[in-house]
Design a protein around this nucleic acid. Structure first.
Length: 490
RNA sequence: CGGGGUGUAGCGCAGCCUGGUAGCGCGCCACGUUCGGGACGUGGAGGCCGGAGGUUCGAAUCCUCUCACCCCGACCA
């Protein structure tokens, strides 16, 4: 099986085999595009969740939960929002089945809902409908809630991990007394996402703001972090929206300010999804399988015994378990694989496929010399360690691997970042190199649209750190004051 | 919804053109030898050839109709 894992992002689904599978629901075309997250994949998601959740709480947020079903009428109150999502909604129309005349099960036509329910594609509407009752005075603000949930978007075309019909995510929804405070919240959460991506996922990202075309339906400004995958395509890894007073107006959420004047509340929303796991895999993995950053790896260290007979196995097992305990006492997650059903070589390959950062092999030779063989997944280097202070050495190695994976991704991105100053150059870079192309743009939605039609490239973002620079639009030649990032994207 | 493609063992595929007892690799089971990079040998289990209809003495193979899935595009986190 591993032998087939030879292509890179071309066949990235192979990287996913330990994490997810397509939902096996072929009998029913209505659920195509769903995925099953396998235990190992879910373990990574849980690690992401707990890290993010802590970051949210450290910035003053609380978790809450809102209903899966949204009455159709709620959904249509914000005009841009409904327009953005209308084409991809799953709708519940009935609430009961019955046995039909032919003995089969059918939808009971007498159980038709008065008002259809939308399976949430995102929760702004139902949350703002709820916030109306929570907010009267400036003293009730801010409200800083996050929700861990699943959402459903009936995409015309799905792609495992990156665009599944149902996906898991978190969505933060905050309410503020002033625009300023809401903008600050938006920016703060963007920073949280960028920190998470870089520190935990070892994934360098660019912070930026979306152009009008790419903006979230109902937002004033959409901020994002953009990452580059190994095949040269960009991936939006997280978004944070400044929603202005759009949803407060739509749901009539007002508060009385210090001056006794009624005002609409200012809103933000922000989210990341299981797509992050796709990003993790596509950014770091190689032909041997996954490469997981130690901070998110469900198993950080695997210990594999090498032995010829049962007596040897027993001795090595005891030895290995003492090492396992020493590592665990330092907070590392360690698996000892003493299965007699697979050979060492098989296990080596399997854990490489799973992206386990460090592998320790212990054989009779090591037992004699007080050593272990240590192999790191990121570089595939093997070396022999003395067991003295092994836990400190391994801890150090894990940190080193985390950093190395980041550096590798960062230098890859750097090597795939270009500037284009005329159309031919621009098209040539997109067609032959891929990656991020910094180019001038005249700032109009029409031009962006035209460029997209001609090249399939979109403006990934206007980087927050973009320098002022005079130039002329890559397509129209009209004046521009700074470069934006173009790329083909997932 | 447009344009391509594919349905044969758990997985990946060959066989189809030119009809004649269902094949290969991996995986699985048993035994033995192995075990420091996905071991080897011997034996074995496993199929309504996506479904329906037709042609034929005979259909995985030819014809008709259907169903499903995959890829590309429009849409999108």
């Amino acid at each position: 099986m591993a032998k087939e894992l030879t292509s890179r992002a071309e066949n990235y689904a192979a990287w996913y085999q330990d994490l997810v599978m397509k939902a096996d629901l072929a009998e029913n075309s209505a659920v195509r595009g769903c995925m099953v997250i396998k235990p190992y994949g879910y373990a990574i998601w849980e690690k992401m969740q707990s890290a993010l959740d802590k970051m949210f709480k450290d910035t003053g947020h609380q978790n809450a939960y809102f209903p899966l079903f949204i009455p159709k009428s709620f959904f249509s109150k914000e005009a841009a929002h409904v327009e953005g999502f209308a084409k991809e909604c799953a709708v519940v129309t009935h609430y009961r089945l019955r046995t039909g005349a032919d003995g089969g099960i059918e939808v009971d036509p007498t159980a038709k809902l008065e008002e259809e329910l939308i399976v949430r594609p995102t929760s702004e509407t139902i949350i703002w409908n709820t916030y109306r009752n929570w907010i009267q005075s400036y003293r009730d603000l801010p409200i800083l809630c996050n929700q861990w949930a699943n959402v459903v978007r009936w995409e015309m075309r799905t792609r495992l991990f990156l665009r599944t019909a149902e996906f898991l995510w978190q969505e933060g929804h905050t309410a503020h007394a002033t625009a300023d405070e809401a903008v600050q919240e938006t920016r703060q959460m963007l920073d949280v996402y960028a920190d998470f991506a870089e520190k935990w996922m070892a994934l360098p990202v660019i912070k930026g703001v979306k152009s009008e075309n790419e903006r979230f339906a109902g937002a004033i400004d959409t901020y994002c972090i953009e990452a580059l995958m190994q095949d040269g395509k960009a991936l939006q890894a997280g978004t944070s929206h400044f929603l202005g007073q759009n949803f407060a107006r739509a749901f009539d959420v007002k508060f009385t300010n210090r001056e006794g004047v009624q005002e609409y509340v200012w809103a933000t929303s922000w989210g990341v999804s299981t797509r992050l796991m796709g990003a993790l895999v596509m950014a770091h993995s190689d032909d041997e399988g996954l490469v997981l950053p130690p901070m998110l790896a469900p198993i950080q260290v695997v210990i594999v015994p090498i032995y010829k007979n049962a007596e040897q196995l027993e001795i090595i097992t005891e030895y290995a378990k003492s090492i396992k305990k020493k590592l665990e006492d330092r907070g590392m997650s360690v698996k000892y694989d003493g299965r007699d059903t697979h050979k060492p070589g098989w296990k080596f390959a399997e854990y490489e496929l799973k992206g386990v950062p460090v592998r320790i092999a212990i054989g009779p030779r090591d037992m004699e010399n007080n050593t272990v063989e240590v192999a790191r997944r990121d570089t595939k280097e093997k070396s022999t360690y003395q067991v003295t202070d092994l836990e400190i050495k391994i801890e150090h190695l894990l940190n080193n691997i985390q950093q190395n994976i980041y550096n590798k991704a960062a230098s890859f991105r750097e090597s795939m970042t270009w500037k284009a100053d005329n159309w031919d150059e621009f098209v040539n870079l997109l067609d032959n190199k891929g990656g991020f192309v910094y180019a001038h743009w005249d700032g109009t939605a029409e031009t962006e649209q035209k460029i997209k039609e001609l090249t399939k490239a979109t403006i990934r973002c206007i980087p927050l750190d973009a320098k002022e620079e005079k130039g002329s639009c890559i397509l129209t030649g009209k004046p521009s004051t700074r470069r934006v990032i173009f790329a083909r994207a997932y």
